[in-house]
Design a protein around this nucleic acid. Sequence first.
DNA 1: GACGGGATGTCAGCGACTGACATGACTGTA
DNA 2: TACAGTCATGTCAGTCGCTGACATCCCGTC
Lengths: 191, 191
Amino acid sequence: MARWEPDARGRLAKAALELYLERGFEETTVLDIAERAGVTERTFFRHFTDKREVLFLNSGALQDAVVASITEAPPGGSPLEVLGAALIEGGRQLGVSREHARLRMSAITRHPSLLERELLKLSTLSGAASTALQERGVAAPTARLVADIAVGAFSVGFERWLDVEDDAEADLPDSIGATLAELRELAAPGA
Amino acid sequence: MARWEPDARGRLAKAALELYLERGFEETTVLDIAERAGVTERTFFRHFTDKREVLFLNSGALQDAVVASITEAPPGGSPLEVLGAALIEGGRQLGVSREHARLRMSAITRHPSLLERELLKLSTLSGAASTALQERGVAAPTARLVADIAVGAFSVGFERWLDVEDDAEADLPDSIGATLAELRELAAPGA
DNA sequence: GACGGGATGTCAGCGACTGACATGACTGTA
DNA sequence: TACAGTCATGTCAGTCGCTGACATCCCGTC
């Protein structure tokens, strides 16, 4: 598996994040990234489809976890409950450090181009969740709406997790769960 | 204001949509668009920042309408109620034909690159709505969550409006309102 | 009819991205 | 030990998105 210097992909992702934070996204050339990682520009594009994708290495893992969680959920439960639990479980399995997540998010929010890609990933996650819900018998229009809303809450919960001051109190699944609960309150007829 | 052939911007937007539908986004060159519109490639980039933006000419108008509606809303009412009414009003003022909206959406969903831009516009709208809510005294975290959720419902409502078969029954504000109502049901504690 | 300003044209150039082909490194096998 | 096959990487040439600098043209104004 490993030849030459191993893990070119990982080195490229690391070099890219560093450079995006040091100089900014626009000011960083793919050639810069490749050179810092010790490979050629061409090699970069063999590992990542474009200059943005390099910050989204593990976005597929979250989606897989969420879909699996929906599929394996016991029958019964409202769509929002099922998906909510799946998103909390996905957050649990993510296993990313707040430090790294903060740096990554910092780079992403600094440039619209990267934000676009982040939004696309969330949209893809929403689409996959919607499909998984439909396979459980949820009607398509309902599934799409629930997925959209719940993934939105997931995203907000993730950001709130990054904002917590005290490291000891920061728990991603808790934060997602709390945000989903708040969603229910805000949407409640009385609110 | 108008010299040479008037409305180069509008001609460019029209030519771009046509070509994206005829050949696809990737297969269309900015030079192609410019030639069909009777201008130079350079002129294209004076009117639009990039090849995607050309499909999002009036996205600012919706945002302005929504923000204005939030700002002018009478005091009282939950954040979700205020924003929901503002989004319905925004939909009312949009004034786009379903035919044109369908073609545009068809082009957008055909290519992830365009979908990214659509998502960014919605995110920007959400951010603006959140800010407007905060100026009404809504706490920042709540405002962000409500804005995210409500704009998501708006987007789903818009798509549903496009899907309605009978032209006579298709009303955008109604569709947005119905989707918001469904959101409340789905999120209600009992559901 | 000279003047000024805004929209357009022209041109040169950088950087993102791709296809085609060559080369290197490591594995399995005789 | 030699040889062949495979897969990641390197090399090279080319297209296209996008930008800055400068020239030009059309129009209203004085």
